[in-house]
Nucleic acid binder design. Structure first.
Lengths: 257, 257
DNA sequence: AGTATATATTTCTATATTTGAAATAACAGG
DNA sequence: CCTGTTATTTCAAATATAGAAATATATACT
């Protein structure tokens, strides 16, 4: 017989998953109806989740999610936790392509390196976890900017000095906005010597099941090696890497689409 | 007899609460030992939480929290959800003091009004949910800045134009940093005509159980009414309001200190 | 490579917990 | 105040859960 699971745990999480942005409240009637439970059982689960701190009562018989989940979520998204998940996947990318790979988050208008690898090559770029990179002239940065909604993008650009670091840096705001639009359309970004001459990079977003960007993944190396064919291979590898990371973060949950 | 709770739900959440920033991983041995469970039972709970998407396996017998919690947390911290929790408490503050009150979040270096009230007065300031306010010259903003660690504060100030809006606006960075230091020490911030002449406001942070600031609360009105005695009353009311909001967000969980 | 130890998994069954019917209580709307 | 709906409580039947025992796997040591 298959491993014995605890049905109550499964039910509890099925109830939690019923909440959504468009459904901030749940009643026992909702739960009973949608999970095919007896009304008494539904009430009992809601009370149990409340006692556990997972739900808080809004009014009699109506609940919403408790702040406990914010605390738990922070333990999921710490840089260390994300880096730990990303590292083996980056190693796989680096080994597959024999180039460097990197994972990032986006904070305060900057790209922060979470994790990175080194290829078995003599010529490479030295990036380390914790390093901050400009957003406007990196492939990672463009991917992060592309993930913002229009208002947030406009605000981010308002505060972003478009400093020219090489002759290829995009320093004109309208041009950058068009570049971001292209990134949105094609789903990846390329940096061709915009931050560092002779360096070429491609980045893709890792998007969670709720549609939000969790981390960015990129491959980078000297332009002499990273030709267009190499970029295509890198894009394919990074897309697969993104899937692997999402699977690693969420696990093989039964609730997965 | 007291209401019957589901013991499995309680145990599941007790396991989830074992995770922390310093403890990103758990084994069945940890769970069995610390929750006084049989080893088989501990294994079974971990497997059940994994199947529910709450945990993901790191290696054989070792787990970490799943990204599901990030998705759930976002449903908790949407502006609408926070505003809904804050509104009745703001109403209580406004009624108690007969002045306006407001709740905020901090995004992209700005204070965003989440919810607000109007006192039964003719002379008042028109603030509405969604409005963005400068951080450097508002009491809410100073409280948010004070909640940042030194690095994050420095970075935020790097990008913050210290525009003089009145003669009292602090436009000197060193002075502002000293002001923020004072806010950290005293636990509240005051704005005395720095953003709008003749307007006085006091703000306090609402801090979650993990030590992070969730929302800011403030009381505001014309300086002719908001004298020092009124500020003291406001501070007391806002401090109690902060507690009420934390309780409302987390609920009366058994895990509460 | 072999052995010992520790941990993980599987199986099975006793029983403690959970479920849900029925009764009662509380609430909302007319 | 009455009625209908939802929430809560009680209690006994049902069953899911817990944990002992056996087995499997992994790791560390020699």
């Amino acid at each position: 017989m298959a491993v014995q699971h605890n049905n109550s745990v499964a039910r509890a999480f099925a109830i939690l998953e019923m909440f959504s942005e468009s459904r901030p409240h749940l009643t026992a009637g909702d739960v009973a109806r949608e999970l095919s439970l007896n009304n008494v059982t539904a009430h009992r689960f809601l009370h149990s989740l409340e006692a556990a701190g997972a739900l808080v009562p809004v009014s009699r018989g109506t609940y919403r999610l408790g702040h406990l989940f914010v605390d738990l979520a922070r333990r999921v998204t710490s840089h260390q936790a994300l880096a730990e998940t990303a590292q083996p996947v980056l190693d796989w990318v680096a080994e597959t392509l024999n180039e460097s790979a990197m994972a990032s988050v986006f904070e305060g208008g900057s790209v922060i390196c979470l994790a990175t690898t080194k290829p078995k090559r003599h010529l490479f770029v030295d990036l380390r976890p914790g390093m901050r990179l400009e957003a406007h002239c990196t492939s990672q940065g463009k991917v992060w900017l592309a993930s913002l909604d229009d208002k947030a993008l406009s605000r981010a650009l308002d505060q972003m000095p478009l400093v020219g670091l090489t002759e290829r840096t995009i320093t004109d705001r309208a041009l950058l906005e068009r570049e971001i639009e292209s990134v949105r359309e094609q789903g990846y970004a390329i940096n061709d010597g915009e931050r560092e001459e002779g360096l070429r990079t491609i980045a893709v977003p890792v998007v969670g099941r709720d549609g939000r960007m969790i981390t960015g993944l990129s491959v980078y190396g000297p332009a002499s090696r990273i030709n267009n064919e190499a970029l295509e291979h890198a894009h394919a590898a990074l897309t697969e890497a993104a899937r692997k990371i999402v699977d690693a973060l969420y696990g093989r949950s039964a609730l997965q689409a």
